[in-house]
């Protein structure tokens, strides 16, 4: 199993570090040829405006859309934003691979960034996780086929569909690999 991490810009190395620790082969993805070699894809945190612009410039935009029909994609923070159906503050074009509406920088600027405990529902069990929220977005609404699986108070901070897993926080900035493990299992399930 080989998981690609979109390496246009952002904390892609942190995702790769977690995957390597879990003995998963990982490659940085900067063009469609590299993407074709992957069994799953992670879109990391970074600047969503930059990611979208460079996905388009590198023909990755349409390739990722095609990729999602057969394989799993995880997005954290900016990665969640670019996967969403609709983006606010400001409106941006997106991949529209998960039916959620998202507000960028919804908690404010860096001075409002925070770490807090969140509740995850993994395999039907409720567990705690350290949520690192950096200039984080908020999920305004979730549509049909979208399962909320993570909460900060009453806000949905993690959600999934059959092929897509997204979080508004950064599991890659903690030493806790459970969310990545969950994604790996999901990706394997789809390949079967």
């Amino acid at each position: 199993m080989r998981i690609g991490v979109a390496a246009i810009q952002g904390d892609f190395e942190r995702h790769q570090r977690v995957l390597t620790k879990l003995n998963i082969e990982t490659i940085p993805v900067r063009n469609p040829v590299q993407l074709r070699d992957c069994h799953a894809l992670i879109i990391p945190g970074g600047e969503s405006t930059t990611l979208i612009k460079l996905f388009k410039a590198n023909q990755l935009f349409n390739e990722i859309k095609k990729f999602a029909q057969k394989k799993a994609i995880m997005g954290t923070c900016a990665g969640l934003i670019v996967l969403a159906n609709k983006i606010y503050n400001p409106p941006l074009e997106s991949l529209q691979l998960i039916d959620i509406e998202v507000t960028r920088n919804a908690y404010g600027r860096q001075v409002d960034s925070f770490v807090d405990n969140i509740r995850l529902n993994l395999y039907g069990k409720e567990v705690q996780f350290e949520g690192v929220f950096i200039r984080a977005p908020k999920i305004k609404s979730t549509g049909q086929g979208v399962e909320p699986i993570g909460y900060l108070q009453n806000n949905v901070v993690m959600a999934e569909t059959s092929h897509i897993l997204v979080s508004t926080f950064h599991p890659e900035l903690t030493d806790d690999p459970r969310i990545h493990e969950y994604f790996i299992e999901k990706a394997k399930g789809i390949l079967k």
Binding site: G10, D11, F12, G46, C77, R135
Partner: peptide, 17 residues
């Protein structure tokens, strides 16, 4: 520390840019 995760975390987000 949490403080460090947030500060260095933002620096991580700016990588490759």
């Amino acid at each position: 520390s949490k403080d460090y995760k947030l500060k260095v975390g933002l620096a991580e987000m700016l990588k490759g840019g």
